[in-house]
Design a protein around this nucleic acid. Structure first.
Lengths: 200, 200
DNA sequence: CATTATTCTAGAATATTATTCTAGTCAAGC
DNA sequence: GCTTGACTAGAATAATATTCTAGAATAATG
């Protein structure tokens, strides 16, 4: 019980710092966010912040890693369940849109702050996980490409044709330049992905 | 003549600062770039840097504004020349790809650093110019949408369906995660845009 | 030309902010 | 109830952005 308490104390501080950082990073950008702002908003001390994360960039990298994991987990199994190429392509697109719609703050952070986050150990880890994830998707696609169920194209192009439009609209929406919630256009982007990838 | 000389001095210092900043911003990111690095790389003094730009963010905003203007200028006239919907859609896509291929450093900066640049006066200016530009494109599309030469969709979706895939691949390429020059896929992305926008 | 105003450059001084350091507090297990 | 390790606090330091002051170069004026 006492142990539980300790973990809670830790967890709470750590989570509060992450929450405060995400809010502030998204509102002001990472650079404009000072440790002092995070400290004040989270109620933690400078010492705590540095104890948990080491430096400002690691706070960002942690947010990035946790968000990416959450999204990738949501997609697991969807492909296994897909009956055919069209269903799979549309499932990937819809899953992406649904995740963005449900987690706009995390999505905003991932889309707009990746460039800032240099190659810390945490980012390398995120990179590795993403590679594994993309490889799994590529694997699912491979037989469909071979059998002509999906248009044959240079392999570099698939991910952009699949998610590029949804990606782009997500940026538009998350930046506030478009007001219409991304969920409204779920099927439009799924159709567009399929029309770019279906065989002629 | 003396006047000419003076402008050159100014221009050179100013341009050298911008060149050094673009290099360093793209290599290390804006935050990790110090004024000292820009000063050393450009050969200017701290005083000069601040005389010309006022603060670090304004250097970024200037790079952003100049790059966006350059791209937008390139697209002017292309639409006026387009014979029909398909030609127009493909011309826009190709023009974007060509510009990115020809100006990778500028493109990288625009795509990866927009979020960092807050609403300084310069960014507001860039925003206004972009609005005018998008309005001109929307205007070109309007009669085609009305007459059914282009698929009828919610207006928020068009830009993402038109350039989203190319956009996405540009990021991939510019970040170094894909090695194949974007120009190779010029027609693939033009086709994809058209297949998303052509009437059923 | 000489004079004056303006723009530009230089680098030292200052202010802001990230990070480190030291001294503790707190809970867990013995 | 002692010891250990994880955690917190906030002061001290270091790194960096920005401002300031002086002066050099250039342009404008009579």
């Amino acid at each position: 019980m006492t142990r539980q308490k300790s973990i809670l104390r830790t967890k709470n501080t750590r989570e509060k710092i992450l929450d405060a950082a995400l809010r502030s990073f998204n509102e002001h950008g990472i650079e404009a966010t000072t440790i002092e702002m995070i400290r004040e908003d989270s109620g933690a001390s400078v010492g705590s912040v540095y104890h948990h994360f080491g430096n400002k960039e690691n706070i960002g990298a942690t947010l990035y890693l946790e968000a990416v994991r959450d999204y990738q987990q949501g997609l697991q199994g969807l492909l296994a369940a897909a009956e055919n190429a069209e269903a799979g392509v549309k499932a990937i697109t819809r899953s992406y849109i649904d995740w963005v719609g449900a987690n706009p703050e995390q999505a905003r952070f991932i889309l707009y702050s990746r460039r800032y986050l240099a190659r810390s150990g945490l980012m390398a880890e995120a990179e590795r996980e993403t590679q594994r994830f993309l490889a799994a998707i590529a694997n699912w696609f491979k037989p469909l490409m071979a059998s002509g169920k999906i248009k044959r194209l240079p392999k570099e192009c698939y991910s952009s044709l699949l998610l590029g439009s949804a990606h782009d609209y997500a940026r538009l929406w998350l930046s506030g330049r478009s007001k219409k919630p991304i969920g409204k256009f779920r099927d439009i982007f799924a159709e567009a992905a399929w029309s770019a990838l279906k065989p002629d």
